[in-house]
């Protein structure tokens, strides 16, 4: 019998395959259910680390710098990610502020922190302390980061406000767009290559 690390099990239908040799950007699909079972990631670990550090800075920036600003009869107002969470804290709906704060700030911040930890050690070909726990946690966090939805929400808000007040995107909105793209690139399923590449 072959070593089980040469085998892939489809997570959607439990079919077992021999790990296929893949060229860059190629993917293998499950014969039964058509799920992607394996793909060659397009970024190396050091590139991931660089993107991850950039994402960390962008996240700090959009958390506290304005994403949108509005003007009403000479008065100015602007809101960051943290302000949007804070606006939901008051009154009986504060539970939703926890959900929003988690999905927009806490989860992405944890993802970036854990990835920086793992990838910095991986840079020196080492397993970080807590490697297995961090990898498991990243897998649990993955569905709960919702920055891309917030980005669409910011665009929807601009349209909703036009006519009532003067609304304009601020620097944070462009940082948010960049951050969203980065997070999709670094926090996805491609992380699994860390298991193989760090002995």
């Amino acid at each position: 019998m072959t070593d089980s690390s040469d085998l892939i099990i489809c997570e959607y239908c439990d079919s077992v395959y021999q790990r296929p040799p893949l060229a860059r950007n190629e993917r293998a699909h499950c014969q039964r259910c058509n799920a992607v079972i394996e793909r060659r990631p397009w970024l190396g670990l050091d590139q991931l680390l660089a993107l991850n550090l950039t994402a960390g800075m962008l996240l700090a920036f959009v958390s506290f710098y304005p994403i949108l600003s509005v003007q009403n009869q000479g008065r100015n107002n602007a809101a960051s990610l943290a302000d949007s969470v804070w606006a939901l804290v008051d009154g009986p709906i504060s539970a939703i502020a926890a959900v929003v704060g988690a999905s927009l700030i806490l989860v992405p911040a944890l993802q970036v922190t854990l990835l920086t930890w793992l990838l910095s050690f991986a840079h020196f070909r080492q397993r970080a302390p807590g490697f297995r726990w961090s990898m498991r946690t990243l897998e649990v966090l993955r569905p709960w980061s919702m920055l891309e939805v917030f980005l669409l929400g910011a665009l929807v808000s601009v349209v909703k406000l036009t006519g009532r007040v003067e609304a304009a995107p601020a620097a944070g909105l462009f940082a948010l767009a960049a951050l969203t793209l980065l997070m999709i690139g670094i926090a996805g399923r491609d992380l699994r290559l860390l298991w193989k590449q760090v002995p």
């Binding site: 994403i67 949108l68 600003s69 509005v70 009403n72 009869q73 008065r75 107002n77 602007a78 809101a79 302000d83 949007s84 969470v85 804070w86 606006a87 939901l88 009154g91 709906i93 939703i96 502020a97 959900v99 929003v100 999905s103 927009l104 569905p143 709960w144 919702m146 939805v149 917030f150 669409l152 929400g153 910011a154 929807v156 808000s157 909703k160 406000l161 009532r164 007040v165 609304a167």
Partner: peptide
């Protein structure tokens, strides 16, 4: 998770539109 859209819009609008008597949005 795309359904979260409306929740984020409400949060953002409530954070932005706070002009006292001139106009307020509350969740």
């Amino acid at each position: 998770y795309w359904s979260m859209l409306d929740v984020f819009v409400v949060g953002l609008l409530a954070a932005l539109v706070q002009f006292g008597v001139l106009g307020d949005i509350e969740p």
